[in-house]
Design a binder for these strands. Structure first.
Length: 511
RNA sequence: GGCGACGUGACCGAGUGGCUAGGUAGAGGUCUGCAAAACCUCCUACAGCGGUUCGAAUCCGCUCGUCGCCUCCA
């Protein structure tokens, strides 16, 4: 079946119809977090978007291999920093092993992503486990003449590379412009032949804890290298889709492309490069360096970072999906509260579906000729409407994964469902087949593709207490029918009622 | 300075040459013991100024404003 899924490719600056390199296999890579601190809301957008992307690709019938890495090699905080990296810094502050830091935050990250409804990636490679592969890429780059070693560090020769390639093709920059705009006050540049060159292997200073042996001495890989190496290892020289936040476009992804072209891969690493936009707070980008971030764990729990209350993971997921991934999103209480209501409305719709499923209606037609009956069914006035609403669900998704439009059409379909559920005459206008298709599509899009699920809100113990109060009332009134009924119902839930001298209590059934 | 986004109704947020998404909030109504939910109706916007066009929120120009990347960042 043809499905006109098109995706915006940063590399070509336009929407392209999606065609896998090796159908039906599809390789997707998302740049994961550097695990040295708690994940914030901004960190969630890429994973949520790519979760929907991979879910949708699977829905379309592709066999997807989704790779989302964990960067646990302590990269330097900046070129100006000598020897200190993020992880070592955090480790020293907390007096523990750097790998403990990495493990701790990687665990937390996975918890948060799972809470947000993101399916675990198929492969979650860690940079520290792929040092050999990264060294290999460095060696290839040197072999191809695009890398040079200075004092145990290896740099990528950007001007040399630019002679035959275009460094800057992803982020639309020219080497000339960049050279003109280079700041000349950066420290640690003396080893580089050009200010544009970037480290692909860095010599470890004595105080640098995370270090590995290499042909160039003890050191650690450059901060763009792991993605190139791991993408190639698991998705081949050319993957289908590679993504990350807009702020990764330059230099991170630009360098990745240069590395892959400069290595024996000789490719752009991925055919389609996708970038999600930033999340802002009061119009300003949320970032660790600015300190204006909202931590995911915190916002699930209670007020934090300017928000007056907690927002559930599913509310957050819905909130993110209610805008298109390439648009910036601003967070606020008002926006989140509106999202929460919308999300619950969608969930109530989900619960309604069971009541709508193929009612055996129109018995009046029973005696009609069967063919005539079918023809009537497919031409019923309500059908066209319903079929259109159903088809609309996928229009937005196919247009560069526009979840905002998809959600809007879900609400349109839901309104129809609500009407059908309360208006028998309207229901009679609709054929069972169209209804069934619509119901199935709604469920598929909400649950399987958008990955939204019902979050239990009711407190079971409180509901139980309420039931027990009715039980007590019935008992007092000697309404033993009622009493037995309640006992039986609770028994069915694995709960037994105990009438003690102290009052009514309950326990889990031991049967 | 270089490159690039964006400015939509009370709020959030799609769309992008004619058919005026959607959610939330607000007003009125149907339903209802009271509610809730649901449904119906209303509030109908595209920063400003020019231009192109039969027609622009949508294309072009200018102005104003906001933001991002160019340093780690999702």
């Amino acid at each position: 079946m043809q499905h006109p899924l098109s995706l915006y490719n940063t590399l070509t600056r336009k929407k392209e119809e999606f065609q896998p390199v090796n159908p039906p296999q599809v390789g997707v890579y998302l740049c994961g977090p550097t695990v040295y601190s708690e994940a914030h809301l901004g960190n969630a957008r890429g994973p949520v978007v790519f979760d929907v992307l991979t879910r949708y690709l699977r829905h379309l019938g592709y066999s997807v291999r989704y790779v989302r890495n964990i960067t646990d090699v302590g990269h330097l905080e900046s070129d100006a920093d000598e020897g200190e990296d993020k992880m070592a810094k955090a480790a020293r502050a907390q007096r523990i092993e750097p790998m403990q830091i990495a493990q701790h935050y990687a665990n937390r990250y996975r918890q948060n992503m799972l809470a947000l409804g993101c399916l675990p990636p198929d492969i979650e490679p860690q940079a520290s486990g792929h040092i050999t592969e990264q060294i290999q890429v460095v060696a290839e780059i040197i072999e191809n003449g695009f890398g040079y070693e200075v004092n145990g560090s290896v740099y990528f020769d950007v001007p040399k590379y630019n002679e035959a390639n275009r460094y800057g093709k992803l982020s639309n920059r020219s080497v000339e412009d960049q050279l003109a705009g280079t700041r000349d006050n950066l420290a640690g540049q003396d080893e580089k032949r050009s200010p544009l060159d970037f480290a692909i292997w860095k010599k470890a200073t004595p105080e640098h804890i995370m270090r590995w042996p290499s042909p160039w001495g003890e050191g650690f890989p450059g901060w763009h290298l792991e993605c190139s190496a791991m993408s190639r290892k698991y998705l081949g020289d050319l993957s289908d889709i590679h993504g990350g936040g807009l702020d990764l476009m330059f230099p991170h992804h630009e360098c990745e492309i240069a590395q892959s072209q400069g290595s024996h891969s000789h490719t752009d690493e991925a055919r389609i490069w996708m970038h999600n936009n930033m999340i802002t707070v009061n119009g300003t980008k949320m970032s660790k360096s600015l300190g204006n971030f909202v931590l995911l764990g915190d916002m699930f729990q209670g007020p934090t970072g300017g928000l007056t209350q907690a927002y559930s993971p599913q509310t957050v997921r819905f909130f993110l999906l209610q805008s298109h991934y390439r648009s910036p999103v601003d967070v606020s209480d008002e926006a989140l509260q509106a999202a929460r209501k919308g999300y619950r409305k969608l969930m109530n719709g989900l619960r309604l579906l069971d009541k709508l499923v193929v009612s055996e209606q129109a018995p009046a037609n029973q005696e009609d000729d069967r063919t005539t009956d079918n023809e009537q069914r497919t031409t019923l006035s309500g059908d066209a409407d319903l079929r259109k609403l159903t088809a609309d669900l996928f229009t937005g998704l196919n247009d560069d994964l526009n979840t905002a439009r998809c959600i809007a059409s879900l609400f349109n379909l839901l309104r129809k469902f609500n009407t059908l559920a309360t208006t028998p005459t309207a229901l009679a206008e609709v054929g069972a087949e169209a209804l069934q298709a619509a119901v199935a599509a709604y469920r598929t899009v909400v649950v399987d593709i958008l990955g939204l699920q019902d979050e239990p809100r009711a407190n079971a113990e409180q509901l139980l207490e309420l039931t027990l109060s009715f039980y007590t009332e019935a008992k007092t009134a000697k309404a033993y029918d009622k009493v037995d009924q309640i006992r039986a119902a609770l028994k069915g839930q694995g709960i037994v009622i105990k009438d003690t001298k102290a009052g009514v209590e309950w326990a889990y059934s031991e049967e």
